[in-house]
């Protein structure tokens, strides 16, 4: 119940931020649409194959991870930019396996998205325990860098196993 109430309040706050017009009619429409959205969500939660979204992430560690990820993005952007602007485009493309250690689906999604978000590496396929990753300039330290990212993502998970 608390969860439902919080969802409705969050949706209404989002409405207020997005509309920017605070006349009674618009605010009333906002309240109505938040309530309709929450009722629909409750109905979907009660369906037979419902999957509830659970966020097993530590909030402060997640923000620190974002800051770390920004630095990684900057570094790899610079690397790929150099390849694009160099006249002969020296590439070393390679498709390889990277093991992941996250326990939750959300953690795995964060890791795979982080791999894709840093230019130069793209997660292509998911198998049990490993991602297939395509790199544009594969070097001997590429796997180590991805293992470090894997450890960082595992550190922000807060699941009790």
């Amino acid at each position: 119940m608390l969860r439902t109430l919080l969802t409705a309040l969050t949706l209404f706050a989002l409405w207020l931020l997005m509309s920017g017009i605070y006349s009674p009619l618009i605010i009333g429409l906002g309240i109505a649409s938040s309530i309709i959205a929450v009722i629909t969500m409750r109905r979907m939660d009660n369906a037979a194959d419902a999957q509830r979204m659970q966020i097993y992430l530590k909030p402060i560690a997640t923000i620190r991870y974002w800051a770390w990820l920004m630095i990684e993005i900057a570094k790899s952007n610079w690397m790929v930019t150099k390849i694009i602007l160099s006249p002969n485009m020296q590439m070393n493309r390679h498709l390889f396996k990277v093991p992941y250690t996250q326990k939750t689906d959300l953690g795995q999604a964060v890791f795979a998205n982080s791999i894709t978000l840093t230019p130069g590496t793209i997660s292509v396929e998911v198998e049990d325990g490993t991602f297939w990753v395509h790199a544009v300039s594969y070097a001997s330290d590429t796997k180590d860098a991805l293992a470090e990212m894997d450890a960082e993502v595992s550190a922000i998970e807060s699941v009790v196993a």
């Binding site: 993005i73 900057a74 952007n77 790929v80 930019t81 694009i84 590439m91 493309r93 894709t116 978000l117 840093t118 230019p119 130069g120 793209i122 395509h134 544009v136």
Partner: peptide, 13 residues
């Protein structure tokens, strides 16, 4: 496969 990487530059940085 290499174009994927180039496209993600404008999408991230």
């Amino acid at each position: 496969w290499s174009r994927l990487h180039a496209a993600s530059i404008s999408e991230s940085a």
